[in-house]
């Protein structure tokens, strides 16, 4: 379907605005290829989730174009796009009585919009998705009885059952403990390498992004500060100025990436803080 030279997702001069901030996102151009894992980082209100929603086609750019496998996103019917792109929003219902297995099966929706019952092929795909996310053990349990980390893995399994070529996630580790943070990023890394998916993940954790992502997009206030491999983008100097903090870097023996530890906030030149958009 896609060769190595065509980007899976391409943003060409994309801008976007809100009613109260019509020119929020400044022109952004990106080429994202299969097998890459992109981390979108930046302070609150930088436009991380906005970019993710634009890439998912949930929002339409004010100007510019997003191309999915060389086709403009706006020209692809919704149900076809859903077979290519899976999106995991930050707010997900976790209090459902629906079983984990059913949640994963519902990821098959783009392929079976009409049939009343799930067929054997769908069940097989769902079971595989649950195996690769280690959720098969609680496939019978209602979602509400699972822990936050388990439920998040179930939602990831549902997205895998969608068999996408692009997997977009909005802060998938936001409320999870250290173990799940690592295991989910490991899973995403594996998906990019082994399944040759394009993974794009919005995160607040710069260390996880540096360690697990092949590429990083650093945003600030709707501006693209830098995009590229973590080592070139995430220098302490740049991050200190973008995040307005003082950072210390530490390096353990077996790590290739330096760990950045926030020490204290710098004084804000301008006290007005934006909400996360």
């Amino acid at each position: 379907m896609t060769d190595e030279t065509t980007p899976v997702l391409r943003a060409a001069n994309v801008t976007f605005g809100f009613p109260n901030r019509p020119d929020f996102l400044k022109p952004l151009s990106l080429d994202m290829f299969a097998g890459q894992c992109w981390g979108i980082i930046g302070p609150n209100g930088a436009g991380k989730s906005t970019v993710l929603r634009l890439l998912a086609g949930l929002w339409t750019p004010t100007s510019g174009q997003i191309l999915l496998e060389d086709r403009p996103l706006g020209n692809i019917p919704w149900h076809q796009r859903a077979k290519r792109t899976a999106f995991l929003p930050q707010q997900l219902a976790h209090d459902l009585t629906t079983s984990a297995g059913d949640i994963v099966l519902m990821g098959r929706h783009p392929y079976r919009r009409l049939g009343l019952f799930d067929n054997a092929a769908d069940r097989k795909i769902a079971a595989q998705a649950m195996k690769s996310t280690q959720t098969i053990a609680f496939s019978d349990r209602p979602l509400r009885t699972l822990s936050g980390g388990e439920a998040q893995r179930v939602h990831i399994a549902a997205a895998l059952a969608q068999q996408p070529s692009t997997f977009l996630l909005d802060e998938p580790t936001a409320s999870l403990d250290l173990h799940y943070q690592l295991s989910i990023f490991e899973l995403l890394q594996r998906l990019a390498i082994e399944r040759h998916l394009l993974v794009v993940v919005v995160t607040h954790d710069i260390n996880l992004a540096a360690r697990f992502c092949t590429h990083v997009l650093l945003l600030n206030d709707g501006f693209e500060i830098a995009a590229g491999p973590p080592a070139s983008v995430m220098t302490p100097e740049v991050l200190e100025s973008v995040y307005n903090v003082e950072l210390a870097s530490a390096r353990a023996d077996h790590d290739t990436h330096p760990w950045l530890v926030p020490l204290k906030p710098k004084s804000m030149p301008d006290e007005a803080q934006e909400d996360d958009t």
Partner: peptide, 12 residues
């Protein structure tokens, strides 16, 4: 029921 955006991303 799972989520408005997830439904949209799945073609609803």
């Amino acid at each position: 029921a799972i989520g408005e955006e997830i439904a949209r991303s799945r073609g609803v």
